[in-house]
Design a protein around this nucleic acid. Structure first.
Length: 1080
RNA sequence: GGGCCCGUAGCUCAGCUUGGUUAGAGCGCACCCCUGAUAAGGGUGAGGCCGAUGGUUCAAGUCCAUCCGGGCCCA
């Protein structure tokens, strides 16, 4: 796959009409075909990297004392990689590759998130056990070992994909959250929080399955929603201590679908801003006044009369009589009052919310917010009422509904009663209805850290910036305490031991501490190993047992900076030298995930952020705008993309997308294909072009070394080198700012400049048989060589494969001292001395003139081969005039005109018109803008010409100068003129015999070249051309332009009236035949 | 329900921070050119009530409000 100089010998050409090369005439380069099999090339590069140990070397070659720290955010070790992972892996590869090339040593250690519910669920499925009860019956030890085995076996899929993508990361020495060292550090982290008083145990209202006698995760709770019938009742609660708005004896109406929670009612929630109505109802001769949200009067009390309204705020504090009076003593602690609740809905129910804090999270939080630290839980683990509610003690809560309803009815409290058919969660394992129930839970007191979290967030450079301010910042400001315990099995354990008798609690921070207490030193810290380890209570000598919960696996992810190094038990110096990380990157969904937990833990432990730069990427959607879905098959298989287009294309496609601005991308295979067509193939074509002519011309590295210095090269060379150096400066600036999405677009622009302008304009200079100076040829080769090698390095982080291939072909193959991989080289730094902004802008002007000239040719049906006399550029802008003057040859050549002239006055070709410069005049004129705009439109060409020359004109009482107007040039009717901005170009379309014959000569060249191609001649083969024609113009063309034709088609001789001329060619004139015979 | 984000040409996206009157690019499409990069290359053209409505302003794709559709996270 790499070019070797050995194969170049036999094809070196020695053109007879050229001075001998100063080298031995042999090229160091071997011609490469214009087509390339990108996937196959990438495979070969992968092997090359293995052979030279490219990744490891790229790290080791950089100084150990100049480390750049990157943290890998671990993927869950289950399932196979999807596009989100490919995106993350690309970002996590591009940035470290760049900073490596900038001279830093970057260890890139892969991480595996091994714990948590997804793994457990998979194992449950595989083992055929479902839910906690069955797991415990099956045996926690066996279950956990099955989880461990599953994690071990998922690594292989990843290995292939990550390698194929070209990501350099050490997967042989990953950190894994299930390794004992990692888990011990997690203990240490937890113990630090404990010592700082940031850990407490409280309760959290969770989905609970009485069938499985266990709380479930939200994920599990969502697994089995069913439509089901439940009671739907409205109950009145009489006011016993009202206020100015709500008199004693009025009723507050609440609605519930869970009558079993009514005995637990401790408060009623009202929305402060909700409007409530006092409704008079006459029922069986009794008149009642009942309160509910105004919006719901129609629905709940259609026969009532609204007699008053009040806002929710007016209801607060009103005391009422609960429907079951088992916990009356709670009134002294603030219960049975109307409290302010958030998010009160008024589209169903009554707008007054029944609150049973043990059985609803909102209820719990609302009461706590109001300072009511009360919790009544009368439901046992099996879902039965306890003795706290004697009427139904021992009865399943759902089955008690009818009894409770009857009791309420007897008490005259039921306002309405019916059933509702709604979606309700069921236990995915036992099929029993889920309830919400307060469960003991461990918390980290994040609220105490909140201010510091917000402050330290200001030290983090977020890309895009708004994420840090808005999304993450808001989240931090609203942070609540973090529930870190899970009632599960496969995870790090909460390292708290508790005395059975006296409830003494001890948090252990290391295995050493465990050994001190218990005399045991386990080599594994999973639940099934730890739970049997007990020790006597230092206070009362009873047994200390570990609390049963495991840790939220996000706690481990957030502990990763410490735990991956087994800090503080090992690597203390290394940790201190490398914390916090320079760079991390994940997608938007990690705002509340990894980004958050990293930040919370490092703030708590070290009062520091844990990362300095964070690139947040968007979510990848399928092409139809929906989520990528395996069942819908609405996205291409990554393997198919690798095989069809290669990893470089996929990488560049993702980098050059809204994803790097944290916006969603509709993933499209066509987009990947487009990268191949617009980036990879054109770039490769240039390489092929270079090697083809370097070989044909026998250009060697020694020759390139003799090329003129850049400052002494032709303008087109200096231009492309200037553009390239500007690009280098831009790319460095954007990479330093982590704006990865701003890298590919300017790169595309350079490819356009290089291929469609530099190579196209310079093509003849590479062709030694042409009539060009040796120095000029070498300047062109050297410029193109330098451009390609520099450009390859600029692109190396994004396109590691193709650029490596270029490096091998253009550098390694010709220079024994070249670094063996492009990824071992240094990233280019802009050479300011090569940047000539005036030249760049002059060239841009000239290109725009040429583009306008082409337009004129097209619209007047004049083929480019037909020479024309004159192109006139009309401009009053001295910069434009200067640009044309210094590039006149370029314009005449590109547009095939004899001369280009510049003039300032528009004459009869163009009329000046103007629009107001709104940006300038708007603020000055305000409402008069409209009148002035009308006046400006009516200005004459002469008025405007005066303004264009620096004068002024009065419009609607305002003096307007050149900066106040936006001058345009409109072609006058009947002219061949194109106008844009400060200039116009006019084409003289007059043809005469001389021009026509010259055009014909060019056509003849083109036709003869086609014959050469048909004969499969090599680009440097010499020929004898014969021709025969009676056409007068043809004879004249050969007579007057024969030398030129011969030179163009490499004819050593042209024979007129050749009887062997038998190839008919069509030049739009009389019949012509030619013959082309190679000579050797 | 809340926070953040997206909605511009058939498709994928610029432009929105800092409002300025002719809204750009690429792909696709149509037509043309070139034929010594050739299973390439170049040019030209058609194609848009800038998600909707209301507001601010001399002026709104751009700012504000509401709504609709989609996404992520949270409830």
């Amino acid at each position: 796959m790499t070019a070797s100089s050995a194969g170049a010998d036999e094809t070196a050409s020695t053109a007879p009409d050229q001075p001998p090369a100063r080298s031995d005439g042999r090229s160091d380069f071997t011609r490469l075909p214009p087509t390339i099999d990108l996937p196959a090339t990438e495979q070969a590069i992968l092997e090359l990297w293995d052979d030279i140990d490219a990744f490891e070397q790229s790290v080791q070659q950089r100084p150990a004392d100049d480390e750049y720290v990157f943290y890998d955010g671990p993927p869950f070790a289950n399932g196979t990689p999807h596009y989100g992972h490919l995106l993350a892996s690309t970002t996590k590869d591009v940035v470290p590759r760049y900073w490596t090339m900038r001279g830093h040593r970057i260890h890139r250690r892969w991480g595996w998130d091994t714990h948590g519910l997804p793994v457990e669920m998979k194992v449950e499925e595989a083992l055929g056990v479902r839910g906690p009860a069955e797991i415990e019956e099956f045996g926690v030890a066996a279950f956990n070992e099955a989880c461990r085995a599953l994690v071990d076996q998922t690594a292989d899929d990843w290995d292939y994909v990550v390698r194929r993508l070209g990501r350099w990361v050490d997967m042989d020495h990953p950190y894994r959250t299930m390794d004992t060292d990692f888990m011990e550090s997690v203990w240490w982290v937890f113990d630090q929080l404990w010592d700082k008083g940031l850990v407490y145990r409280s309760v959290k209202v969770l989905p609970y399955s009485w069938g499985a006698t266990t709380p479930l995760s939200n994920f599990e709770a969502n697994l089995d929603y069913r439509m089901t019938d439940d009671p739907s009742i409205v109950v009145r609660m009489p006011v016993v201590a009202g206020n100015d708005t709500v008199p004693d004896g009025d009723d507050l109406l609440i609605w519930t679908t869970t009558p079993w929670t009514l005995p637990g009612n401790l408060a009623i929630g009202a929305g402060r801003d909700v409007t409530y109505a006092r409704v008079r109802v006459d029922d069986d001769g009794t008149t009642r006044h009942q309160w509910l949200a105004t919006d719901l009067v129609e629905t709940v009390l259609p026969d009532g009369d609204v007699v008053a309204t009040a806002s929710g705020a007016d209801l607060l504090g009103v005391q009422y009589q609960p429907p079951f009076d088992h916990f009356g003593e709670e009134r002294d602690r603030g219960a049975f009052r109307v409290l302010a609740a958030e998010e009160v809905e008024t589209d169903e129910g009554t707008g007054l919310v029944h609150m049973a804090p043990a059985y609803g999270e909102i209820d719990f939080l609302t009461l706590r917010e109001a300072g009511l630290d009360v919790l009544i839980d009368y439901v046992d683990a099996d879902g039965r009422f306890t003795e706290l509610v004697p009427e139904v003690a021992g009865v399943n809560i759902k089955e008690a509904d009818s009894t409770l309803l009857r009791l309420l009815g007897d008490a005259g409290l039921v306002v309405s009663s019916g059933t509702i058919n709604h979606s309700y969660p069921f236990c995915y394992r036992t099929g029993t209805p889920l309830i919400y129930k307060a469960v003991p839970t461990w918390f980290v007191e994040v609220t105490k850290l909140r201010d510091r979290l917000v402050e330290l967030n200001h030290d983090i450079h977020w890309v895009p910036e708004a994420i840090g301010e808005a999304r993450f910042g808001n989240w931090l400001e609203g942070a609540r305490d973090w529930a870190v315990s899970r009632n599960r099995y496969w995870g790090s354990c909460i390292p708290v031991w508790e005395c059975e008798a006296c409830e003494r609690q001890e948090c252990l921070g290391s295995i050493d501490e465990l050994e001190e207490r218990s005399g045991q030193r386990p080599d594994d810290l999973h639940k099934h190993v730890l739970d049997p380890i007990t020790y006597p209570c230092p206070d009362c000598d009873a047994t200390m047992r570990r609390v049963p919960e495991v840790l939220d696996c996000w706690f481990e992810s957030g502990s990763m900076p410490y735990a991956q190094l087994h800090y503080p038990f090992d690597n203390v110096e290394q940790f201190e030298a490398t914390f916090p990380a320079e760079f991390i990157s994940e997608s938007l969904d990690q705002t509340r995930g990894w980004f958050y937990t990293l930040h919370v833990l490092s703030t708590a432990l070290f009062d520091s952020p844990s990362f300095r730069n964070c690139v947040v990427s968007g979510m990848i959607l399928a092409e139809d705008g929906r989520k990528m879905s395996k069942s819908l098959k609405n996205y291409p298989d990554p393997g198919h993309l690798f095989d069809s287009y290669g990893a470089d294309a996929l990488r560049a496609y993702m980098m050059d997308s809204p994803l790097l601005r944290a916006e969603p991308l509709r993933f499209s295979e066509a987009g990947v294909r487009q990268i191949v067509r617009t980036v990879l193939l054109p770039l490769w074509n240039v390489v092929s072009f270079f090697t083809t002519y370097a070989e044909a011309d026998g250009v060697s590295m020694a020759d390139l070394a003799e090329a003129p210095a850049p400052a002494d090269r032709p303008e087109i060379d200096r231009w492309v080198l200037s553009v390239l150096q500007s690009l280098v400066a831009d790319v460095n600036r954007e990479m330093e700012g982590y704006h990865l999405n701003r890298v590919v677009t300017p790169v595309l622009g350079f490819i356009e400049d290089l291929t469609n302008w530099y190579v196209r304009r310079s093509r003849r200079r590479f062709w030694r048989s042409g009539d060009v100076e040796r120095a000029d040829t070498l300047a062109a080769f050297a410029t193109l060589y330098e451009s390609l090698t520099t450009f390859a390095r600029v692109l190396a982080p994004v396109l590691p494969f193709l650029t490596e291939h270029l490096h091998q072909v253009l550098e390694v193959a010709v220079d024994d001292d070249a670094p063996k991989s492009i990824h071992w080289t240094d990233f280019p730094q802009a050479d300011e001395s090569l940047i000539d902004t005036e030249l760049e802008s002059a060239m841009a002007t000239v290109r725009s003139i040429i583009s306008m000239g082409r337009h004129l040719r097209t619209s007047n049906d004049l083929r480019v081969r037909q020479p024309l006399r004159t192109l006139t550029v009309i401009t009053r802008d001295p910069d434009v005039a200067a640009a044309v003057a210094s590039h006149a040859g370029l314009v005449t050549d590109e547009l095939n005109v004899r001369e280009v002239v510049v003039r300032a006055d528009e004459g009869e070709l163009v009329s000046l018109t103007a629009k107001p410069n709104f940006r300038v005049l708007g603020p000055r004129l305000g409402a008069e803008m409209g009148a002035v705009a009308g006046g400006v439109a009516a200005l004459s060409h002469e008025d405007l010409a005066a303004v264009a020359d620096g004068g002024t004109v009065e419009v609607a009482g305002h003096e307007l100068g050149r900066d106040d107007l936006d001058l345009r040039r409109d072609p006058n009717p009947g002219t061949v003129v194109e106008a844009s901005g400060p200039l116009a170009v006019a084409l003289d379309t007059t043809l005469d015999r001389e021009l026509e014959v010259e055009g014909l000569a060019r056509d003849l060249v083109s036709r003869i070249q086609q014959v050469r191609r048909d004969l499969d001649l090599d680009v440097s083969d010499r020929v004898v051309v014969g021709w025969a024609s009676d056409d007068e113009q043809v004879r004249e063309a050969f007579a007057r332009h024969g030398d030129q034709i011969a030179s163009e088609v490499l004819a050593v001789e042209i024979t007129a009236d050749d009887p062997t001329a038998d190839v008919e060619v069509d030049c739009g004139v009389g019949p012509v035949s030619v013959s082309v015979t190679p000579v050797d």
